[in-house]
Simulated scan of single mutants.
Amino acid sequence: MKRVIVFLAVMFMTLSYGQEIKQVPQISVSGEGKVKVIPDQATVSVSIETKGNVAKEVKKENDEKTEAVLKLIKKMNLAPADYRTQRVSLNPQYDYEKKKTLYNATQTIEITVRDLNKYDELMEGLVSQGVNRIDNVVFQSSKMAQYESDARKLAMKEAKHKAEDYVSVLGQKVGKAMTISDNTQSYTPEPVYARFKTMTAMESDSAPRETLAVGEITIIANVSVNFILE
């Protein structure tokens, strides 16, 4: 009998506690923070592609062009950490019309340009040294972590301001936050797929040219917050 009484008492306390939790007045709101930034650097992915009939010769020619490209990069005083070989390949390709096997050698190099004033000079130099494919250009900011933090703070401020707007007509106040959910999607810079002129066309333009319109990148943070109402 005593066990039954104790069991019922525990159940009653548990139910009462659960009811008390549910009765805590709350408000759930979301907030968004946006920070617009002018990029100050770019990541460029370029490829040296060579085709031919003999695998050994194709690879040798591709290696020579790659060496010339790397010498140019070093000559422009880019830090060693700012460029790396991303991919190397040598593939046979069978030509069904000519009924013979051709070979395609490719080396892809990723370069970080921390001074956008060097962009045009670098691109023209790369093409002159053997780069025949510019895969993409991604504009970024060197202070991304700081701007992401700023966006998160703005999102929290908007969430609190929104909660205060809702409860202001009720004579209540926004209390402590019970839960905070970060709904921010990972920031991925959008690549700019580049097209470039032949060197003959480039050399015919003697005047300096501006070929970039970097614009702005927008960093967005999203949060959901549950506030206690007082």
Score class of each variant (00 low, 15 high):
146 Q>S: 08
173 K>I: 02
162 K>M: 09
176 K>M: 12
182 D>L: 09
152 R>W: 00
158 E>C: 01
178 M>H: 08
140 Q>L: 11
143 K>R: 13
170 L>T: 12
160 K>Q: 15
157 K>A: 11
174 V>S: 09
138 V>R: 09
134 I>T: 05
163 A>M: 05
175 G>W: 09
142 S>F: 09
169 V>C: 06
152 R>Y: 10
185 Q>C: 03
138 V>D: 01
166 Y>P: 01
159 A>F: 14
182 D>W: 14
170 L>Q: 12
176 K>T: 13
133 R>Y: 10
172 Q>V: 06
183 N>Q: 13
158 E>W: 05
181 S>E: 15
160 K>A: 09
169 V>D: 10
137 V>E: 06
158 E>T: 02
161 H>W: 06
154 L>I: 02
160 K>T: 03
163 A>V: 05
182 D>A: 06
173 K>A: 08
167 V>R: 05
171 G>I: 06
144 M>G: 03
143 K>S: 10
145 A>P: 00
141 S>F: 08
154 L>M: 07
161 H>M: 11
149 S>A: 10
176 K>H: 09
176 K>E: 15
184 T>H: 11
140 Q>P: 01
185 Q>T: 13
170 L>F: 15
176 K>N: 12
133 R>M: 10
146 Q>W: 02
179 T>E: 13
136 N>L: 02
176 K>I: 09
152 R>L: 07
146 Q>N: 10
143 K>A: 10
162 K>T: 11
136 N>W: 06
